[in-house]
Nucleic acid binder design. Structure first.
Lengths: 212, 212
DNA sequence: TCAAGAATTGACCCATGGGACAATAAAAAG
DNA sequence: CTTTTTATTGTCCCATGGGTCAATTCTTGA
């Protein structure tokens, strides 16, 4: 028993370090393998090799393969999420918040085919993995809430909802396109595409109210 | 040797029938398994079972697993494609052609989670399977061409290109959403979403020219 | 310095999967 | 009615993969 009091939510730096570091390495190794091999080709041994360790160690830190990849999914999501959060902190007007979300979702060093391939493989498993489905729901919910924080200042609640759905779908679709045909869509193109979508939808609204 | 002359491109009805029927059954069985199990869980034996046959027969008709699933992908795509083609035949104005493509891509009996799950699994393999990548390119090219056949009458060439990309991305994104959260998006919602996107983009264009 | 616990490994087990093949049944051709 | 293809099956083989386990090394707290 440690001499200091430990709370579940504190981070007893010294104690947890080693095992947490390993776990993180393995999550990232898992993701890297996913990038190269896809879910069908991802094996524990390949993950171990990628991490420069033995297969046994992987199962020492994760109960089984499923759990490992669930954690890989969380990890990857956290990274993407941080990019948005960082930009969101610097945004103040509603429009700036929208742009923060949009640009954050196409961050140069993240908007890359390999990342997309891995992500796609994970998505393909979502229907058969309740944990992953939950993660996915959280992601969507946060995305939607981020968008609404900007959209509420720009459109009626009903429209805001609808536009938020469109934006997330469009972003996902552009990512998918990048994965399926690398090079067919640049970061700038993607950003412009989504911004145009928002601008167009808002313009429609203006026309309707002005015309009526 | 047959008594009649056979050309590679003719379809000697009687002769090919049996084997062609089997192949089709197997392609569909493969797709069905994909719907249930995903690419990671799809095995030759499950496909055989699904088709009510033995594993051997699967490899009799398809050189290997990869080829089988490539053909499953072609099959599924052909079905989706037909839905669009059928509607496109009845469309005459540019706007009708757009609507045909949009509605065809969300056909009630096709816009369903299982189909989407299977499709997603196939997409996840595209980066590692050149044949699939080719199919994917063909799909995108046809989609784009279908859209442009309508868009050319509605916007400048540059805009048409851009809007076509947006529409395909948005459609893909909405499908993805359906797959990840079944029930979160209805056929009507999806159709409306894409139509609004097009309308919005066109409205933007009008405003720009009118304002200038 | 030593003992307790964690980290790490490699060997092992067993199920499964992809694919080859020979043997049989069924059709077609002649 | 025979011969030649074609359809189909079941068996076999071997590699691989997930997961368990005991044995070993490494940490670390006392």
């Amino acid at each position: 028993m440690s001499t200091w009091i430990r709370h579940a939510w504190t981070d007893p730096v010294k104690l947890k370090r080693l095992s947490e570091i390993r776990r993180k390495e393995l999550r990232q190794a898992a993701f890297a393998v996913l990038e190269r091999e896809g879910i069908a080709g991802a094996t524990l041994e390949k993950v171990a090799a990628q991490a420069g360790a033995s297969k046994g160690i992987v199962l020492h830190y994760f109960r089984n393969k499923q759990e490992l990849f669930e954690h890989a999914m969380r990890e990857a999501n956290a990274v993407l999420c941080q990019a948005v959060i960082a930009r969101l902190r610097r945004a103040h007007t509603p429009m700036e918040r929208m742009d923060a979300v949009i640009e954050g979702n196409f961050e140069e060093h993240l908007f890359q085919p390999p990342l997309c391939h891995a992500w796609l493989s994970l998505c393909a498993e979502v229907p058969r993995d309740e944990k992953m489905a939950r993660i996915q729901r959280v992601i969507h919910a946060r995305m939607r809430s981020n968008l609404l924080s900007g959209l509420r200042g720009l459109a009626s609640p009903a429209d805001a909802d609808d536009i938020a759905l469109g934006v997330t779908a469009l972003i996902d679709g552009l990512w998918l396109r990048l994965g399926l045909q690398p090079g067919s869509v640049s970061r700038e193109q993607a950003v412009r595409q989504v911004k145009n979508y928002v601008a167009g939808r808002l313009a429609l609204r203006e026309l309707a109210t002005a015309g009526a």
